[in-house]
Write a protein that binds this DNA or RNA. Structure first.
Lengths: 237, 237
DNA sequence: GTTAGCATGTAAGGAGTTACATGATTTT
DNA sequence: AAAATCATGTAACTCCTTACATGCTAAC
């Protein structure tokens, strides 16, 4: 999960660990608490060893080594503070990210993992988005049915608090299903042809990098406006 | 968490592992998935070693078909199926449960753990309930504020999906705060004197945690209709 | 002159999961 | 005859957290 989130964020621009954590909190804070450094740094290390990310050269263009010491004007990379390791995404990392995103198995439907996937939806293709949303909906519907059963069958064994827990849980599940339904409808209405099984008729507007190991045409350039068209985008029509 | 849940359930009646898991799913299914046997059985073992639970002897005059209770009595009771180990709560276990419930630290405020505490609210005193509810509210309010800040400060860096994630997360947090507010108000209105700082005026009649019929108006009696009105479920009127 | 923030890391451990192993009994 | 349900357990592993260790700079 953390790995996916790192890959997703680095898609945007190279970053060092500390910054990554802050961005992670800002992006995923609605879902879960901040990742600790105790998991972040070892994960970065592992990912670098696997070649998913790479350490960015100290500076852009300027001194290769030695030469001008820090403290120079310019845009200081290690300005006084402790040296930071800036990581960038490698092509392998991009591909791994695409794979992780495309796997819409039962794990993908877990609350937190679903949230991470969702956060990076603009970097996947519509078909994958739909599969993930549907997997999550299935999961929540199952939970909803379980609660309904528990209420119907064993309500008499529950005390007031147990009952309230079920009631609130049921309401929460129903609310999330409604939300997912809206999102799914929105995805489908946006590109209904996407769902046919005759291939991939669409290829025009989005250049999502789901394509395997395509060059490195810096898709970060499009990071500013994938689907961004204002408020109404998500919410039904 | 699993330990707390087991202690809470065994409060009701002795049970074996398999049954425990089913009851756990029925009670906590609204919050989280079922615990796996791979964690359940080792946990039971550990708890027995610590003396929190004990293996129930064949107990009660159990109708031993054929009347032969003799030497085979030492063998676990097997009703045809594989031998089951029935566990019951020990006094140490009861005390440990009370302690775990009373700890309303920051961990208690985690979604799942809060849910487990809540499920067993009727086995704690009102002051503890209030502390747990307030700890959870604090936590959710913090998350809500974080999201608001993220929306105010970095909304322009978010794409449509990132934005929708924040929006939905904010709505979820606001909804939960409202729910907690209702619960807190309900607890306070039920016994306002409870909150004074001059001691514990209602400390006398409660042995440990039990005696729900005494400590509370036992609104569990109204558990007959699960599909009652959505709002104000806890208000016993 | 101390606190807060920046910055990276390691070691130990918690709390679960999956997969495996075994076997009886009831239902289809 | 096969599948589902009942029933208990172990081993390996995942993924994350807490606590510790280090050291610099800005601000109060």
């Amino acid at each position: 999960m953390l790995e996916l989130a790192i890959l997703g964020l680095l898609h945007e621009s190279p970053m060092h660990g500390y910054e990554l954590r802050k961005r992670l909190l800002a992006l995923l804070g609605a879902i879960r608490a901040a990742f600790s450094y105790g998991s972040l740094y070892p994960t970065l290390k592992r990912m670098r060893q696997r070649g998913l990310i790479a350490e960015e050269a100290p500076a852009e263009g300027t001194a290769e080594k030695g030469g001008a010491v820090k403290g120079a004007a310019e845009k200081p990379l290690l300005t006084g503070r402790r040296a930071r390791k800036v990581y960038r995404l490698t092509p392998e990392g991009k591909e791994h990210f695409a794979q992780l995103m495309a796997e819409a198995g039962p794990e993908t439907a877990d609350e937190a993992l679903f949230g991470v996937h969702f956060a990076f939806f603009s970097r996947t293709d519509p078909a994958t988005r739909l599969r993930i949303l549907e997997a999550r909906r299935r999961r929540v519907e199952e939970r909803r049915e379980r609660i309904r059963e528990a209420l119907a069958r064993t309500a008499e064994r529950l005390d007031a608090y147990g009952l309230e827990l079920q009631r609130h849980g049921l309401e929460t599940a129903e609310r999330e299903v409604r939300w997912l339904n809206e999102l799914i409808a929105s995805e489908e209405s946006r590109r209904p042809e996407q769902r046919n099984d005759f291939g991939d008729p669409i290829a025009e507007p989005e250049r999502h990098q789901a394509a395997p190991a395509q060059g490195t045409p810096d898709p970060a350039a499009s990071a500013g406006d994938p689907n961004k068209q204002g408020k109404g985008g998500m919410r039904d029509g």
